[in-house]
Amino acid sequence: MAAILELAGVLKAFGAITVADDQSWSLGTGEALGVIGPNGAGKTTMFNLVTGTLPVDGGAIRLAGEDITDWPAARRCRAGLARSFQVPQPFGAMTIFENAFVAATQGAGLAPAEAEDLCLDVLDRTGLLRKANTMAGGLTLLERKRLELARAMCAKPRVLLLDEIAGGLTDHECKSLIETINGLRSTGISIVWIEHVVHALLAVVDRLIVIDFGRKIAEGEPRAIMDSREVRKIYLGIEADA
């Protein structure tokens, strides 16, 4: 499995705190990788570094073998990286449909007619179609999170980065989210998913990595990782209050 995304010795510090400490890992083409770790471990920061909204202090990031470390965020998206934001960032004065349309025309570079078809399809699959004409500024948090997923999908990424999209869902909603993501996987998209809702993660990912204090402290087969002593030690606390 050729690596689609690779991090090699990535470093980032905010003043005295190190949030990415020599992080190295790779994502295979078509693979789904889960990321877990306690609050403040540096998971979202790692996405910021990968997508280019934050510059690295050192190390290299490669997409399909190409060094993208110095590329601006917009170029990385057009090259096939799209993310959902943990704290939703909707275009508030636009409708749900128009939010998706931005991603389809700018990120995926589609012509209007193709973009419209893609957006309608994605909104249908993410359960947002009914609200397509609702202004994004007036949505509930859960709807905003769903929009994050839909919008990232409309950018037609090769690598989809998901940041905590399963929190607060009912069992039924969670099941349909898992179905949606597994459906995406069948189209060949590679996925990195940061998630505290472990059972949802385990229903999708092939492999897990664990981050603590900006360091990758474990990596491997999901069940084995969850059962490992190190992970249970830092992770049980989170599962208890989630």
Partner: peptide
């Protein structure tokens, strides 16, 4: 136009706009 879509996205949220491929 297509650029107008980008511009309205920038108006609403620059972080999201650049993360969706828009050259601000």
């Amino acid at each position: 136009s297509r650029r107008g879509v980008a511009l309205m996205a920038i108006r609403d949220n620059e972080l999201a706009a650049k993360s969706l491929g828009i050259d601000i």
